[in-house]
Nucleic acid binder design. Structure first.
Lengths: 241, 241
DNA sequence: CTTGACATTGAACATATGTTCGTGTATGAT
DNA sequence: ATCATACACGAACATATGTTCAATGTCAAG
């Protein structure tokens, strides 16, 4: 092995501080280069590197290829800054109280078929087919592109997911290393849930069950990412067996 | 002269509404093109034109050449807007609270140790260590003897339960056939989660994973039922591996 | 009917901003 | 040592996004 990851470094801390300060005074997020300036780093890739770490640790959230889309999920220090606007204060109060979100169930996920996607991009959905989840259980603030699927069949067992489980997913067409994604495999003509790792010249799809072997995909085009898995819920009933 | 400026048009109103809605749910401002989509305008210059008007009228503020830098200064809607939204939110909060139940996390469940039970004498628990679940997801009406455990280690894999999962359980000392229970096995000195089946002269403990073999217990006294599993929740983070 | 301010369009443009990649350095484990 | 990994740099790249402009349509006042 090698150098141990030391959790949060001084730079991580500074970035978080800068983010909250900047957002507080400007009302929008800084760009990568602006963050770089604030910590005296000229390389944008290094900032990107830090931001990915902070995201994996759950401190921030950001959208792929969208400028200034960083959201602070977890302020680093106890000193909470006063919200600039009424709307923001209101939002904070509401999220502290209400904190429940209704996620539409888009359909069933079966190994042998592509997964159904939520019907509309707008915030309309049928109240009948939805699951209510406490915001406190969800890592992301952005709750808009979440949807849920009911698992059908035992074929996701290698992903530690059972028949009847409910999988909460976030729409995505790309993934970062270590994220669990729903993938459509052209070669096998099947949907599967795996941890995603991009390696040198291939993609490794690692089952959640550590006893099982990974799948390797050479051709990135033969695999389509449908979404990232955010949560799995299993309601346990009496089951014949 | 010519056409009179009519103050705020329908489109201005829609833009303002879209801005607040988008910022509220995404945490950052939309791009000009996204605003255009929301009002069915394909020309970015027209949106820019509207935004300049809104800025001159003091409704919004934005920075030159900086993406997604729009700030809403004055929410639209004649008077009713903010109070209405507050009222709505509080109504939502109330109903959310009513339909949500806070389940205490009694501790960690490890294969090699008996499971911790909730400090049941008093109906007091630390708010920090609890999970909020929507009542609609719980089968049982009786919510009082529910408690939650965080799974530690990979030893529950045969029960399709992973390290870090949260298991919601109901206190019980007996079980019906087909129910998933947490059991302490005197013989093996371990805690395990299995489906429970009482057969002619023995008890069959069936793993949730259908690929795995059951355990048989002849002596009912060497096994202690700690509770029934009601629900399993897995929050999926990025996982190194 | 003109006229001119307002409204709208589409495309081209400029650049702000996130992403990728090759390379290099330090650090700890073996 | 030597190996793998985390950390770091900077340039080239791709694209997301704001800006500009010339042309055209619309409508009410003159």
């Amino acid at each position: 092995m090698a150098r141990r990851q030391t959790g949060l470094s001084e730079r991580h801390r500074k970035i978080m501080e800068f983010l909250t300060r900047f957002q507080d005074s400007h009302g929008y997020s800084p760009s990568i280069r602006q963050i770089g300036d604030s910590i005296n780093v000229k390389s944008t890739s290094l900032v990107d590197y830090y931001l990915n770490q902070l995201q994996n640790l759950g401190y921030i959230e950001r959208e792929d290829r969208i400028s200034r889309s960083i959201r602070v999920l977890q302020p680093i220090q106890p000193g909470v800054s006063l919200p600039a606007r009424v709307g923001e204060a209101f939002r904070g109060a509401a999220s502290a109280l209400a904190s429940m979100v209704s996620i539409p169930i888009a359909g069933r996920i079966v190994a042998s078929e592509p997964i159904p996607m939520p019907v509309s991009d707008l915030n309309y959905y049928d109240a009948e087919s939805s699951v209510d989840i406490a915001r406190s259980l969800l890592p992301a603030k952005d709750v808009n592109d979440l949807f849920a699927l009911e698992v059908s069949g035992d074929s996701m067992i290698d992903a530690m997911i059972n028949d009847g489980d409910i999988v909460v997913m976030k729409k995505a067409s790309s993934a970062n290393n270590g994220e669990m994604v729903a993938i459509w495999l052209d070669d096998n003509n099947e949907t599967t849930l795996k941890y995603f790792y991009k390696e040198a010249d291939r993609i490794r799809l690692q089952p959640a069950n550590p006893n099982m072997e990974p799948i390797f995909v050479k051709n990135p085009k033969s695999l389509r990412i449908m979404g990232k898995v955010v949560m799995v819920i299993r309601q346990v009933h009496s089951v014949a067996g």
